[in-house]
């Protein structure tokens, strides 16, 4: 299994996610620079968290137009697994690989804290991670994580089983009080129609071992490793 992490100049969780991938895949991912135009042969492409180009424009907007993204879109359309976390999720929506947009948080402040998430049925290569309805804890760390899409798109995402994670309370209950950023229908992560592209705001890569306070994120990477083996 070969994986690739795309490095934008302002990426800052690239080493975090590389570590998590390496733990699950038993080999470190290759890194590809944002100005490169070609991707090596790979089974998984990761867009890491950070502030790709400073995000002074809409988060991820400039990254979506970077040279390497044309190749990422091509591979995604050909069925290669793509995981975008935080800034990576923002970039995937800006690049049109996932619907909707990530608006500034409801309280207009950066939020870094652990949240509970309810995993829904996985799709494609992401099926092996969590049971449908399983409650897990990952941290969030973002300023623009408020997921927005029009009602028809949200209905479609729900109808097609494309919601990957929702913010919830410790028991899995969905309520505005457990929605940290105002996301529509408490959506924290979504799949594309084919199920090979996952974008999510929370950071599973920061909860991969007990020393980090929780290891719930590990299963996501291990599930990927099994599916892609």
């Amino acid at each position: 299994m070969k994986s690739v992490v795309i490095i934008f100049p302002g990426s800052n969780r690239d080493s975090d996610v590389s570590y998590a991938v390496e733990q699950a895949f038993d080999r470190p991912p290759a890194t590809v620079w944002h100005r490169d135009t070609e991707l090596p042969d790979c089974d998984l492409i990761v867009l890491p968290g950070g502030f790709s180009y400073g995000d002074y424009l809409r988060s991820g907007a400039m990254a979506a137009g970077s040279p390497i993204m044309r190749e990422v879109v091509t591979r995604a359309e050909a069925g290669v697994a793509v995981l975008g976390i935080c800034n990576g999720f923002q970039t995937l929506t800006e690049a049109g690989l996932l619907p909707g947009a990530l608006l500034p948080n409801r309280d207009l402040k950066f939020i870094c804290r652990n949240v509970h998430l309810r995993a829904e049925a996985g799709r494609g290569p992401f099926q092996g991670g969590y049971a449908d309805g399983q409650v897990v804890s990952f941290p969030v760390a973002h300023h623009d994580g408020n997921y927005f899409a029009d009602p028809a798109t949200l209905d479609q995402l729900e109808g097609e089983g494309r919601v990957a994670f929702r913010y919830c309370d410790a028991e899995g209950g969905i309520a505005e009080s457990s929605n940290p950023n105002g996301s529509a229908r408490s959506i924290a992560g979504i799949f594309n129609a084919a199920g090979n592209v996952l974008g999510m705001m929370p950071h599973p890569e920061n909860h991969v071992e007990e020393a980090q306070g929780c290891s719930d994120g590990r299963a996501l990477f291990e599930g990927l490793a099994r599916s892609l083996a």
Binding site: C112, N206, Q212
Partner: peptide, 18 residues
Amino acid sequence: RWIWDQYDHLVRGDTMQR
């Protein structure tokens, strides 16, 4: 918490005490 929630205290994945 109102303060440190606004600081990314986890990036780099090495924070052992928050």
